[in-house]
Simulated assay, not measured.
Amino acid sequence: MKKHGWMALVAGALVSTGCGEEPLEEARARPVVERYAALVNENYTDAVEKARALQTAVNVFVADPTEAKLAAARNAWLAARPAYGQSESFRFYGGPIDDEDTGPEGRINAWPLDEAYIDAVEGSPTAGIINATDSYAQLDEELLKSLNERDGETNIATGYHAIEFLLWGQDRSETGPGNRPASDFVDGGTAPNAARRRTYLKLATDLLVKDLESVRAQWTPGSDNYAKQFIALDAEEAVQRILTGMGSLSGAELSGERMTVAYDNKDQEDEHSCFSDSTLADLYANAVGIQNVYLGRYGGQDGAGLDELVAQVDPALDKKMKEQLQASLDAIQAIPGPFDQAILGAENSPGRQKVKAAVEALKTQTETLVDVATALGIELNLE
Rank of each mutant, 00 (worst) to 15 (best):
I335D: 02
S328Q: 11
E34L: 12
P82V: 06
A162E: 04
E379W: 00
A27M: 08
G296V: 10
T126F: 12
M259P: 01
G337T: 11
R297V: 14
G377N: 09
V186H: 05
A29K: 05
L139S: 07
V48P: 01
I156P: 00
Q365Y: 06
G305M: 04
P221K: 11
P221F: 12
D234V: 00
T199H: 10
I343R: 01
E100K: 15
L283W: 12
A227P: 05
A316F: 08
V10A: 12
G106I: 08
A51E: 03
A73N: 05
A232C: 03
A38Q: 15
T17A: 03
D277H: 10
A71I: 09
V32H: 10
E269P: 00
A346T: 11
I108C: 06
L376C: 09
A29H: 03
L380Q: 05
P315I: 04
S248I: 13
P82A: 11
R28W: 12
Q353D: 05
E25D: 13
A13L: 13
D101S: 14
V15Y: 05
Q240K: 15
I129L: 14
S89L: 01
Q291S: 14
P181G: 07
L24K: 00
G18A: 06
R196C: 02
A316M: 08
Q312S: 15
R180G: 09
V62A: 03
T368M: 07
Y93W: 12
K354R: 14
G245D: 08
A287H: 10
L208A: 06
E253S: 09
V313K: 06
K322Y: 05
A120F: 07
E141P: 00
E42C: 12
R198S: 09
G159C: 08
A116W: 00
K266M: 11
A194I: 08
F275N: 00
T126G: 11
V372T: 07
F339Y: 15
K50R: 13
I242N: 07
N193C: 02
P336F: 11
A72D: 08
T260I: 13
K319P: 02
L325G: 12
D330R: 09
A8N: 13
E237W: 09
P315M: 09
D211K: 07
E153A: 14
A71R: 12
I129E: 02
Y284P: 01
A334H: 01
A235N: 14
Y84F: 15
D211H: 09
G377A: 10
I290L: 09
D318L: 01
M7R: 14
S248D: 06
E271S: 08
D99K: 13
E383N: 12
V215T: 02
A51P: 02
V288G: 06
R30V: 09
H272C: 04
E360A: 08
A116K: 11
R216Q: 15
A37D: 03
G337F: 04
L39P: 00
